[in-house]
Amino acid sequence: MANQNKIEQWFESRKSRKKDLKANHLWKGVCSGDRFELSKAITLIESANHQDRVEASKLLKKCISSKKSSWRIGITGVPGVGKSTFIESFGKIILEKGLKLAVLAIDPSSSISGGSILGDKTRMDWLSNQENVFIRPTPSGLNLGGVAKHTRESILLCEAAGYDVILIETVGVGQSETLVHSMVDFFLLLMLAGAGDDLQGIKRGIMEMADALVITKADGENLTKAKLARTQYASALHLFPPKENEWIVPALVTSSIENNGLEEVWKNISDFFTKYQAEGCIQLNRSRQELLIMNQHVSELWFSKMENDKKYKVELERLTQLVISGKLNGYMAAEELAKSLIANPS
């Protein structure tokens, strides 16, 4: 009898969970600013379950129709630069302005186990306990750019929940990290002073994308080095081609421990949004980003469809063997495969 009751309780909890993950139910909670419901909504869009994907699609359509917006700010930097510490201190500045803050912190995942640390909440101890703050650590998995697959959708949900500023913290700097630039309005690059080579191996392309360059940990004995680094970076930035929107990228110094320079960072960001929202540049940039997403997703859907197609698998195997044997190179095989798919669509 006891076991029967446990089974019935389990079924009831499953029914309750399914109800909780319905788009209409979650939408009410998200719109009311309920952080627990927002967390469940993000869990829903991250799910690979077919039924969950259906509900997630309904929920995202509601987000788009709500027409709410925010300041979307990407934060990246070399490992050890203190991204989470910077966000903890910078978040206080944002809250003092009477704004609500969401932080989507992308944690590194192991390429072997797929596990991630998910420790950002512990590194942002004060911020995570504030009523007007929502922090969501999400494992990056193996996705290009170190940005979790559904971060874009999480941004929409946070906007619908009424968050004014959304910070997206990435796992670090590298060629793949530039993906964060395709989903934000303002791109903040954090750097260290006195960490070996002045440019620290930072790719030229990443520096060109930055809307502000901030040298962190400018305190104590490191203050002089930080100021020197700012001068060097400012000179380097002048060598880059001007931005399309003619924004002049500042090089700034900050200390999260001493709370120095953070107001200046906020002023630059505020000036950026004030200027370019009025000129329509922010909306134009977002439209371009959405078109990029559309093209990327079409490619993903097409490839996913082909992977399950028998004709495709047979032809791919045939061409694979020709490449291995040296009778075709990779480009020739790809072109032949494309011609075959066009001539014999499923």
Rank of each mutant, 00 (worst) to 15 (best):
N5P: 06
I7Q: 14
Q9K: 13
K19Q: 11
A23T: 08
W27K: 11
G29K: 09
D34A: 08
D34T: 06
R35L: 13
L38W: 08
S39A: 15
K40H: 12
K40L: 14
S47D: 03
R53F: 06
A56E: 01
K61A: 12
K61M: 10
K62Q: 14
K67Q: 13
K68G: 07
S70Y: 02
W71Q: 15
T76P: 01
V81K: 02
S84T: 10
I87M: 10
G91Y: 00
G91K: 00
I93T: 07
K100I: 00
K100S: 01
L101T: 02
I106D: 03
S109Y: 01
S116A: 15
G119R: 08
D120A: 04
T122A: 12
T122Q: 11
S128Y: 03
Q130L: 10
P137R: 04
P139S: 03
S140M: 06
N143T: 11
L144H: 12
G145M: 02
G146M: 06
A148D: 11
K149W: 08
H150Q: 14
R152W: 08
E153R: 11
I155L: 05
L157D: 06
E159G: 01
G162M: 04
D164Q: 04
I166H: 02
G172A: 02
V173E: 02
H181M: 14
S182W: 03
M183R: 03
F187C: 00
M191W: 00
A195R: 01
G196V: 00
D198Y: 02
L199T: 07
L199E: 06
G201R: 02
R204E: 14
G205M: 11
G205W: 06
T216V: 05
K217W: 07
A218R: 04
E221A: 15
K225H: 10
K227C: 07
R230Q: 15
R230E: 15
T231R: 15
L237S: 13
H238C: 13
L239W: 07
F240Q: 13
P242Y: 04
W247M: 05
W247V: 06
P250M: 04
A251H: 01
L252N: 04
L252R: 01
S256Q: 03
S256P: 00
E258T: 12
V265T: 09
V265F: 06
W266L: 14
Q277Y: 10
A278C: 07
E279P: 05
R286N: 07
R286W: 05
S287V: 09
R288K: 13
R288C: 09
Q289K: 02
E290P: 01
L292Q: 13
I293K: 12
M294P: 04
M294K: 09
N295I: 10
V298M: 13
S299M: 12
N308R: 14
K313L: 14
K313T: 11
L316I: 10
L316G: 08
R318D: 12
T320K: 15
V323S: 03
V323M: 07
S325A: 15
L328N: 01
G330M: 09
A333Q: 05
A334K: 11
A334R: 11
E335A: 11
E335P: 06
E335T: 12
E336P: 05
E336R: 14
K339N: 15
L341W: 08
L341F: 10
